[in-house]
Design a protein around this nucleic acid. Sequence first.
DNA 1: TCAATAAGTTAGGCGACGCTAAATTGCAAA
DNA 2: TTTGCAATTTAGCGTCGCCTAACTTATTGA
Lengths: 233, 233
Amino acid sequence: MSAVKRARASRPPLTEPVEDYLKAIYEIERTGAAASTNDIAQRLSIAPASVTGMVRRLAGQGLLAYERYRGVRLTDNGRQAALRTIRRHRVIEAYLTHALGYEWDRVHAEAERLEHAASDELVDRMAAAIGDPDADPHGAPIPRADGTIDETSSDTLADLPLGARARIARVSDENGELLRYLDELGMRPGVRVRVDEVAPFDGPITLVVGRARRTVGAELARRVFVTPDPRTD
Amino acid sequence: MSAVKRARASRPPLTEPVEDYLKAIYEIERTGAAASTNDIAQRLSIAPASVTGMVRRLAGQGLLAYERYRGVRLTDNGRQAALRTIRRHRVIEAYLTHALGYEWDRVHAEAERLEHAASDELVDRMAAAIGDPDADPHGAPIPRADGTIDETSSDTLADLPLGARARIARVSDENGELLRYLDELGMRPGVRVRVDEVAPFDGPITLVVGRARRTVGAELARRVFVTPDPRTD
DNA sequence: TCAATAAGTTAGGCGACGCTAAATTGCAAA
DNA sequence: TTTGCAATTTAGCGTCGCCTAACTTATTGA
């Protein structure tokens, strides 16, 4: 078996918890520096003390670079493993909505379990069946089968100045209620918005979404990622 | 939440190994009496000593009736749990072949993992998407969402007398090579056969399959289940 | 009837992951 | 520079599933 083939075929048997750790660390690293013990614990809903032991083991396996009291970083191996899991997760989310009629607020939980059980072949077939999309239903980019991904660190609604136009690129998944609410407001990835009013002191933001005006809290605004509107107007 | 809804919705959180035990015991019971420690161990490829402990735990949870040195039987609860897992397995197998282009010799391994991760809702959607089939690609009946199943204990090819006509109802899955071979011979569920020659002493059996004559060993013949041919001729 | 053997169970362990409680470390503010 | 707190780690433990080795039971056939 060629090295290339092996790299793709034999997902070395990482356990489910390990895949979850790597995913969590990847996400944390994406928004800043090294992942701290506490960050990881919080994201996985486990005790910080439990993280220390696991993190040491993963470092021993070459998946993480770990310095006591200093937090953790993914090695290249670790990042590749994380991206494989993330690809599975996002392809599954996309497949569930496009092929099986799931609403976008229900796919996360299902994908969270299936991502550990689905083979790369299955995931590739699912992706092909829905036209190899490059983002999941929440706008998150889908890593390619070769392990590459287009991560674009983008601003959130909360970062936009008054009057700015932007397009919603991506919203935080994980919270079904948030997603249902955003859906009601017509705020889905791809939709254009304009900032119409910004209350001071981290106050609510009023947007023009399509023909409607929508006022959302700063908390929510921070969970909606945008890209500059390509429209010159 | 109504009791009915709960029975279906909250698959109480059985672990993966537990689901595997219940499935194995169900299959063993189907072909005889109580499931012995050894039978279970063999089917799960684990040591008999390991089975004893687990079986005691499951009996404690009311899923099994267990008597030391006497083997094990599923309780009604245990049987329902087993059938839920089996439904998931078989629906997934059918879905993979009908919706995602899998060959029938590849679906077992994939379903073996997914059956523990897929929700009942997903499985119901998959089933609906392919027209709610009542058998998996190997001819095994799919338990309904309400927990009922049409088990028909059938003869195997090896039981047929010379000259008998029959229809292939079901073949043993699990062994991909066997399935590929059967496929080459044109021996899939639904196909009609006639017994043309039976060698004595558990010897090979020669069949007419379509226009071809096929000779198969007794071992293989015992893994192919048949029903009497409805044709009067 | 009883001894040989096969089947099953008990005893004792191990690894993966989680927890709580009790140190320890690092940093920031006084 | 010191102190005090938050973050982290260590210590000690529990559960789930699995293992091997040693013992016990059931059965069978001589």
